[in-house]
Design a protein around this nucleic acid. Structure first.
Length: 913
DNA sequence: GTCGATACGTAC
DNA sequence: GACGTACGTATCGACG
């Protein structure tokens, strides 16, 4: 059977424009709506229809304007950013091979309706792709409706009835009763889909409802009778015409061969990297078998899962050449495969490969042992030969690869000389994007949550703690159970999560365009590592030790006996019980605290608190930094390779560990010295680029507050500008103390701080802090409204969003205790700003990495610290790098304020600031 | 010995 | 109760 796809271009363009972030390409041209439309079209192309058309509205009046002059009268003009995308959209649609239809005097809907019925009459299977629910009136055998943005599909009387509560032939009457605010067609007042469906169920049709109008009681009955006269007109307006005179029939809508050269130029110009990669990755996927089927979102509960996804797996151990060949054949035939590396070390920069697992179809997986070494271990395939045989599959850009936390595997394979081209999906990141804030993203949790499946745990086969054995000593039988299952479960979880993600345009953007492209970039940043001057650290450790000893002796002298300055418990007993100093601060558990704030408060009453503070500052630096950093130098590379956790922070920020290089001291002189040990090798330099006040700029963007926008536009020192507003000064009359207070307000507000907190921070009376905040909000009313909106959204939806559509779910915003709810509200206020900043720097990293691809021998990205990127570069490349990195960081988002980047150069990280 | 909870402090 | 997001170190008590 032949297939025809009719695409409602106008509807998608508007919906994509509003659903997607305000994206732009490097040249600053808006691209958000384009992006949505291009992805939608690519999805349809994968299904290989015989005929297709992209239908758009023509400018000018239509017959509906003649029927009803106010038709669409209150519609605002097309936004400039959308209008600018019309021309490029047509170019891309053309280049993809779609015929474009545009007809005057009727709307796109009518053209689609006419073609749909003509085609159905000729026995052609029709799919109408639209975001407009009005098309449900056309659903019948041979005519189906899909919305690629929501993932919904209406293809039968039943599916329409499930959605609207009426049959397709009643949809027109339903719409006539409800009216359409967007098109300025008033229906029956207070009559929504439920009431309209109820009436139609009872009286059959609009005529039936009107005939019985006098029987309907109450206010809504009055409303119906009041609207009765205009309802036939409504019906005429919402009826999609199916008898438009067209130049040609559906058989003329042949899909042309795509114009690869034009597409490459267009995709590159608008920054559609995924599309570009697919274009250059040889043949597009021939997904005929999988298309058409289930588009609907997958079920959430394990109970009503596709049984194929929870059936037990059959796992094969690959020990013979023939088995390997058979599996290579399977992988070759597949569109995408899941894989997983087993190693002897959790640090991927040191791990040795022990085995590999693969899965192509749920339930069928293989474990390929390559390095098991224990008494009685069977002979395994030759590692080098086997990897050489697998290398082309991993490298093939047309072959999609899937994993759970694949950054780890990318490291292991890279160190073995294998390239992974097109690492396309990662269940860790799918889960992170879908459920950030409410669930864990490790494979065991995902298997339980989405498959109702308890996996074999690592500890089950390798033991844990001191009794654990390296994976190479695990029996190959146990290893197969564990490892093949990992690949199998990864694929199964992906099959559940992918459709959930596909049904959310904003989340799909975050996943496809931010998180997945970042995986290989982060892998490179980690692999690059940073050079550490271990001798410098040793000198600093010795100096700190000397001063710690002095503080210790001083404390002993003051107390008259030895005291353990490392034990808060003992210090509390000493200060508050023995010395009877006042305990002014309590820990969360209610004990008297010995933290910095508590000690500062009593420092004028006794010498000991100051001595403890001195000791603590030194001990922190030595134990956490100067002693420890050198332990993290990789013996093979001689450098420190932190590990970045892409799904580490619920807001979207990246976290760093082992060691954490995102909390290296900078505020005190002693602390800052540690940065001198982060060095460039001879002949090279460190370059640091950081966003200036990025989160406050995002607050200005989100709140659209005129005063804040103006201050950033003018380039004034934002804390000074705030102080001038709040304290009623001219800019140059602001005192240092006023600026300090304004800075505390600016930061405090972004964290949801209260007057109580501000008072404590500034050591001022609470009433005064309250006055500052009130004054702030009266000067920046947009900020107050934005914060209230954000709280409201969080309470109603249970989540908040970044500019790019990333979501943070707040579990306790509705159900928690008062304290938990208040805490969730503060998190809700902070997340859009912190999260948007994270989105922006992630995009910048991807962009800069793409540029650096041609200069890997000259410059490396080596660190990310939330709003800062650090590079190591040849001295002769510094200027080029500064210009290009700064440009790409600034262009990573198009906000209502400029994104300013500061940068510095030096022989070490301290100098580079 | 190992593990988890608690307290504290570093970064943005 | 009161300022958001992380990670690491040290202590201390429970557990075996």
């Amino acid at each position: 059977m032949k297939r025809l796809v009719l695409i409602d271009g106008s509807s998608y363009l508007y919906r994509a424009f509003h659903a997607l972030p305000p994206l732009s390409n490097a040249a600053g041209e808006p691209t958000g709506a384009l992006f949505g439309v291009v992805n939608m079209l690519r999805a349809h192309l994968k299904e290989r229809p015989d005929f297709a058309a992209f239908v758009v509205d023509a400018p000018g009046k239509t017959f509906r304007d003649d029927l009803y002059p106010q038709y669409k009268a209150n519609r605002p003009p097309m936004p400039d950013d959308l209008r600018a995308q019309m021309q490029p959209m047509c170019e891309i649609v053309q280049a993809l091979g779609f015929p474009i239809l545009r007809m005057e005097g009727v709307e796109a809907d009518d053209v689609i309706g006419t073609l749909a019925l003509q085609a159905a009459a000729q026995g052609i299977d029709v799919t109408i792709s639209t975001g407009d629910k009005d098309f449900a009136q056309l659903v019948r055998p041979g005519v189906a409706l899909v919305n690629t943005m929501s993932g919904s599909r209406l293809d039968s009387d039943q599916t329409v009835f499930d959605k609207f509560g009426v049959h397709p032939n009643q949809v027109i009457d339903l719409l006539a009763l409800m009216g359409d605010a967007v098109d300025n067609v008033p229906g029956v007042e207070k009559c929504g889909p439920k009431t309209a469906a109820k009436w139609l169920a009872e009286y059959g049709s609009l005529d039936g409802v009107l005939a019985h109008a006098s029987e309907i009681k109450g206010k809504i009955g009055d409303n119906l009778r009041a609207a009765a006269e205009r309802l036939p007109l409504n019906r005429a307006l919402v009826t999609i015409k199916t008898d438009v005179e067209l130049g040609g029939g559906p058989e003329s809508l042949v899909l042309r061969e795509r114009d690869v050269d034009s597409l490459r130029t267009l995709f590159a110009r608008y920054g559609f990297n995924q599309a570009l990669k697919e274009l250059d990755g040889a043949a597009p996927a021939q997904a005929a078998g999988k298309a058409g089927g289930k588009v609907a979102a997958a079920p959430a509960a394990a109970a009503d899962l596709d049984p194929a996804l929870s059936a037990p797996g059959v796992y094969e151990t690959v020990l013979l050449p023939a088995q390997l060949e058979a599996w290579i054949e399977r992988l070759r035939a597949a569109d995408e495969f899941a894989f997983d590396c087993e190693t002897d070390n959790i640090d991927p920069m040191q791990a040795n490969l022990v085995g590999l697992s693969f899965c192509v179809e749920p339930g069928t997986a293989a474990y390929l042992p390559l390095g098991h070494d224990y008494p009685g271990a069977p002979e395994q395939l030759d590692r080098a030969q086997t990897l050489a045989a697998l290398a082309p599959l991993f490298a093939d850009p047309a072959k999609k690869k899937l994993g759970q936390h694949g950054k780890y595997d990318l490291h292991v394979l890279r160190r073995l000389g294998l390239k992974v081209g097109n690492y396309a999906d990662d269940t860790l990141l799918e889960s992170f994007v879908l459920t950030s804030g409410i669930s864990r993203h490790d494979l065991d949790s995902l298997a339980m949550r989405y498959l109702g499946y308890g996996t074999v745990k690592y500890e089950d086969v390798a033991g844990k703690g001191s009794k654990s054995i390296p994976f190479s000593a695990v029996s190959i039988e146990d290893a197969t159970r564990y490892a093949a299952e990992d690949a199998d479960v990864t694929l199964r979880v992906h099959r559940v999560l992918a459709p959930k993600l596909a049904a959310e345009a904003g989340l799909t953007f975050v996943y496809r365009e931010i998180e997945m492209p970042l995986v290989p970039v982060l892998e490179r940043v980690e692999a690059n590592g940073v050079m550490i001057d271990a001798n410098e650290l040793r000198r600093q450790s010795a100096d700190l030790s000397k001063r710690m000893l002095a503080a210790q002796q001083k404390a002993t002298e003051l107390v008259g006996r030895a005291v353990n300055l490392d034990s808060p418990k003992q210090l509390g007993a000493l200060l508050y019980d023995e010395l009877k100093l006042p305990a002014l601060v309590k820990t969360p558990s209610g004990q008297p605290s010995t933290n910095e704030e508590a000690l500062e408060a009593i420092a004028d009453q006794h010498e000991l608190p100051r001595t403890i503070l001195e000791y603590r500052a030194l001990a922190k630096l030595r134990s956490t930094y100067t002693d420890k950093l050198a332990d993290n130098v990789n013996p093979q590379t001689g450098r420190v390779h932190t590990s970045y956790h892409q799904a580490g922070a619920a807001t979207g920020r990246i976290a760093s560990s082992e060691p954490n290089l995102q909390n290296i001291p900078i505020r005190t002189e002693d602390g800052r010295r540690i940065r001198r040990a982060f060095v460039a090798p001879p002949g090279r330099k460190l370059v640091a680029c950081d966003y200036s006040q990025i989160e406050l700029r995002i607050m200005a963007h989100l709140s659209e507050d005129a005063g804040l926008l103006r201050a950033f536009e003018a380039g004034t020192d934002i804390h000074r500008a705030t102080a001038a507003e709040v304290f009623g000064r001219k800019l140059d009359e602001v005192t240092a103390n006023e600026r300090r207070a304004a800075k505390a307000i600016n930061f405090g507000l972004m964290y949801g701080m209260s007057a109580f907190g501000l008072a404590r921070q500034l050591s001022i009376p609470r009433g005064e802090a309250q006055d500052y905040i009130a004054l702030y909000f009266s000067r920046y009313p947009g900020v107050r409204d934005f914060m209230e909106r954000t709280r409201q959204q969080a309470r109603e939806q249970g989540y908040v969003e970044t500019v790019f559509g990333r979501r943070l779910h707040l579990d306790y915003i509705q159900k928690g205790t008062a304290a938990q709810r208040a805490s969730a509200e503060r998190a809700a206020i902070n997340a859009p700003m912190q999260g948007t900043a994270a989105d922006i720097i992630k995009r910048a990293m991807v962009s800069i990495d793409a540029w650096l691809a041609d200069h890997r021998d000259r410059a490396l990205m080596i660190l990310q610290v939330h709003d800062e990127l650090v590079f190591e570069t040849e001295a002769g490349f510094v200027d080029t790098l500064l210009a290009e990195a700064g440009k790409r960081m600034s262009a990573a988002a198009e906000l209502r304020v400029p994104l300013v980047v500061d940068s510095g150069v030096g022989d070490n990280w301290d100098e580079a600031h």
